[in-house]
Design a protein around this nucleic acid. Sequence first.
DNA 1: CAGCGATATCGACAAACGTCGAATCAGAAG
DNA 2: CTTCTGATTCGACGTTTGTCGATATCGCTG
Lengths: 122, 122
Amino acid sequence: MSKSSVVELQVVDEAVAPCCPPLTERPLTAEESERTAKMFKALGDPVRLRLFSLVASHEGGEACVCDISDVGVSQPTVSHHLKKLKEAGLLASERRGTWVYYRVEPSVLAAMGKLLAAPASA
Amino acid sequence: MSKSSVVELQVVDEAVAPCCPPLTERPLTAEESERTAKMFKALGDPVRLRLFSLVASHEGGEACVCDISDVGVSQPTVSHHLKKLKEAGLLASERRGTWVYYRVEPSVLAAMGKLLAAPASA
DNA sequence: CAGCGATATCGACAAACGTCGAATCAGAAG
DNA sequence: CTTCTGATTCGACGTTTGTCGATATCGCTG
């Protein structure tokens, strides 16, 4: 409705929570699992994982949809997957004129990395 | 084809490959995405993620099925999910007498952690 | 061998998912 | 205002997934 609101980079902040000690440290509660699994599930599709890596590795940490649409599926499907990644809290989107840019939510990447961090050695 | 010499804990070695530079470094190829997404997908279910964390955090790095079966689903379902985790290369199983023990495939944990490692965020 | 407890497999079913083409929305440009 | 291009939404479809109860397998033990 509003032509340009204050919020450009909107995310589902519910999923961005600092959830999770390392998996090797203590078992996750049912609730933690529920929340965290959504992120893993979001990366559990080949096309989405590829889109995510395309955004993550793009210069400036963001990428226009038009730059990452060549992943072998139709454009509506790309849009659908980007939406899923956004809903999982992994990506944020911003419209700039004609194009829409996606960028990685950095805190989430760090959180997931920490989650999988191995205790150095056995 | 398996590179392992002394295999007592059998895994699907296809998925254990060292696949993957950090996601922020360069876009994954279609093939890399296909392979890596399977691991994320395996952790993309709440019950499976919980089972995995239960095994990962258990003393000795392994757990008997009987110790981790209380996750709110039926016993066949637990078995089904453990199989999925095994097929994804995340867990290995070993039968010792009456009980079956599962343990985390350590190299895979490290690989996934590296994959999500953030570039120190400037 | 018969029985028992622990896991795994099977078969079925509802729900969720990935995909597409068609239609719609949002800015930019004539 | 009309048109054009980029992106999202909609509706439909076949496939995959998570779950269960019933059944089978494996090892131990009497």
